[in-house]
């Protein structure tokens, strides 16, 4: 499997898309820190941007790459290699490449310009989202045979988690305004990895506003060890379940 990771990683790193992605992230993060005198605000803006860009690029890139590497997979599937290892290898190669891009594009600027705990957790949040959306993209690529359809599914998933889901939450909030919804909200935030990452981040940066009112329960829940542990656990679930399911499907797929 190591060799497959190696070869797909080498292949991806030669890809211009990943270079462009690195450059984009680097330009965004450096210019944010240059333009913004207040580093906390810069981290906030960077969070906003990375919550949008990172999942989007991760899912589209992975879907397209998986379809494009159909040849690679076809070539190797006839070789004496376990099938699941093949997909694991390609998947790990993809997320390694994306994480390298993320480290150079966001991690390094943060390390140099804002080496704080909030900087670190911004990086970790983006990394977690990269893995989650790569997993989801791999799943949609394995499930759909048609390239356009697969990319469509990935885009839809991204759109759903970024916009539609929050819209639904807002709707629920207003429909049920008379009921105590804090616990429900905590539950709902678990069902969306982007929300989960965002809230985890906010609790570090905007504690004041979060605690302003509501906050007590949010803070109590996410702030204590149990809540933080649960957040990490749920995030890990979001990373692993889609890819495990994708591998299962891939094992039974006719190529």
């Amino acid at each position: 499997m190591k060799k497959i990771i190696k070869y797909s990683l080498l292949d991806i790193l030669r890809n211009r898309v990943i270079l462009a992605y690195t450059a984009l992230l680097a330009v965004v993060s450096i210019s944010l820190f240059m333009m913004e005198d207040n580093p906390v605000k810069a981290v906030m803006s960077l969070l906003n941007i990375s919550l949008l860009i990172v999942p989007l690029v991760s899912s589209i890139f992975c879907t397209i790459y998986l379809y494009n590497s159909a040849e690679f997979i076809e070539l190797l599937v006839a070789q004496p290699i376990r099938r699941s290892r093949l997909l694991w290898g390609v998947y790990l190669g993809m997320i390694t490449a994306l994480l390298i891009a993320l480290s150079l594009g966001i991690g390094l600027p943060l390390l140099l310009l804002q080496p704080t705990l909030s900087g670190l957790s911004l990086f970790l949040t983006s990394a977690a989202l990269t893995i989650v959306f790569s997993s989801l993209a791999t799943l949609s690529a394995v499930l759909t045979r048609d390239k356009a359809k697969g990319i469509g599914v990935s885009l839809l998933l991204w759109f759903y988690f970024t916009f539609i889901y929050d819209g639904i939450v807002l709707l629920v909030l207003f429909q049920m305004a008379d009921y105590p919804l804090e616990t429900t909200m905590i539950g709902m935030s678990m069902l969306n990895p982007i929300d989960l990452g965002r809230i985890g981040m906010l609790l570090q940066l905007d504690i004041s506003a979060m605690m302003g009112l509501t906050g007590a329960l949010f803070q109590d829940f996410f702030g204590n060890g149990f809540g933080a542990g649960l957040v990490i656990l749920v995030m890990l679930g979001w990373m692993t379940f889609p890819i495990l399911f994708a591998i299962r499907r891939f094992n039974n797929k006719d190529l």
């Binding site: 906030m44 970024t162 929050d166 807002l170 207003f174 804090e182 906010l202 979060m210 509501t214 949010f218």
Partner: peptide
């Protein structure tokens, strides 16, 4: 304003949806 009326909406703070 939304948060003032419905505290739980704080969960959506800085969501791109809210931005829109």
């Amino acid at each position: 304003l939304i948060v003032e009326r419905n505290n739980s909406a704080m969960m959506l703070f800085r969501s791109p949806m809210v931005g829109l």
